[in-house]
């Protein structure tokens, strides 16, 4: 206890070294590093998917060649085989990666930013703002999230953009609670009170003193959020409420191929492997960061 108190006197400097320490511990954590490298590689590949398919592979992911349907992997020049109307699965998976991970990333980022801003505002100002926000948050939280997803999907069209907006609009309450609580407790800390007493304006206090302390929490939420959204995207596709073709996503590719599991098992194996591995990696990274920032685990 006493050690922590001392720390808070020089919070900025200490927290920086804490971050550095955490980074160093992540660097040493082999599992987390492998997961991180996998995710980063996949992201880069997904980002350049159009370039890779157009220029390097020279295939159009949406162009059917019906004669080649259900071609198994490594035949007729299809590295991962062809789908039910003879589209190149590798090319489609590459494009799908961008969409599925994009939905995960931007959806989580949107809900995190909403949660972060509202949570900090609510925790910092308290009073009426806080009461009203709490009412809204409790209301949204009271509707089972899948119900909300279905409800909102019936309002918006089925596209990647509307899916991002949907999850952004309903996914922020968890972050909000977390951030609000943290802000509350940080607000009571001496250095913030000191800053207030010195006449610093609220924005400065929030950005300079409160925000940096929330980084690790936020990054962990981001990782878990992306993992959750990748799974949610595939579930919505199964229910017929996800992103519609010709736009490929991991979820709609997997959903569609399940009926062909006897004709083209490769059409199920690769999407499901990709989904599970990616989700797993995000979980591992989230865990790794949590461990790294957890002072009780530091030796």
């Amino acid at each position: 206890m006493t050690r922590l108190k001392k720390k808070s006197l020089h919070q900025d400097i200490v927290s920086e070294s804490l971050t550095r320490k955490a980074l160093r511990s992540i660097w040493r954590d082999k599992l987390t590093m492998i997961a991180l490298i996998f995710v980063l590689t996949l992201s880069v590949v997904a980002l350049f998917a159009p370039f890779i398919t157009d220029t390097i592979m020279r295939v159009d992911p949406n162009e059917p060649t019906t004669a080649d349907k259900f071609t198994p992997p490594l035949q007729k020049g299809y590295a991962l085989g062809a789908d039910d109307i003879g589209r190149d699965q590798l090319a489609r998976l590459l494009h799908a990666s961008g969409v599925s991970m994009g939905i995960g990333f931007f959806g989580t980022a949107l809900s995190l930013s909403i949660g972060l801003v509202l949570g900090m505002a609510s925790g910092y100002f308290g009073g009426g703002v806080d009461d009203f926000m709490n009412w809204i948050v409790t209301t949204i939280d009271s509707i089972p999230s899948l119900f909300l997803l279905i409800l909102i999907s019936s309002v918006l069209s089925y596209s990647a953009e509307s899916l991002i907006i949907t999850v952004g609009l309903i996914g922020w309450t968890g972050t909000y609670r977390l951030i609000r609580g943290q802000t509350f407790s940080l607000r009571a800390k001496e250095y913030v009170i000191a800053a207030q007493a010195l006449g610093a304006n609220p924005r400065r206090i929030i950005f300079q003193h409160i925000l940096p302390n929330l980084i690790s929490v936020t990054v962990i939420s981001l990782m878990l959020g992306i993992a959750g959204l990748i799974l949610a995207e595939s579930a919505l596709s199964y229910l017929g409420l996800g992103v519609q073709p010709p736009q490929a996503t991991w979820g709609n590719m997997l959903t569609k191929s399940i009926q062909f599991f006897r004709l083209g098992p490769h059409l199920i194996i690769f999407p499901i492997l990709l989904i599970s591995t990616t989700v797993l990696c995000f979980y591992i990274i989230g865990d790794g960061i949590r461990d790294a920032f957890d002072p009780t685990l530091q030796k």
């Binding site: 059917p64 039910d84 109307i85 089925y158 017929g240 519609q244 010709p246 569609k256």
Partner: peptide, 16 residues
């Protein structure tokens, strides 16, 4: 209409 595999395949091919 969304959600029908044959329609998806049909119109993807016709588009091409």
């Amino acid at each position: 209409n969304a959600g029908n595999t044959s329609q998806e395949a049909l119109y993807t091919i016709m588009q091409d």
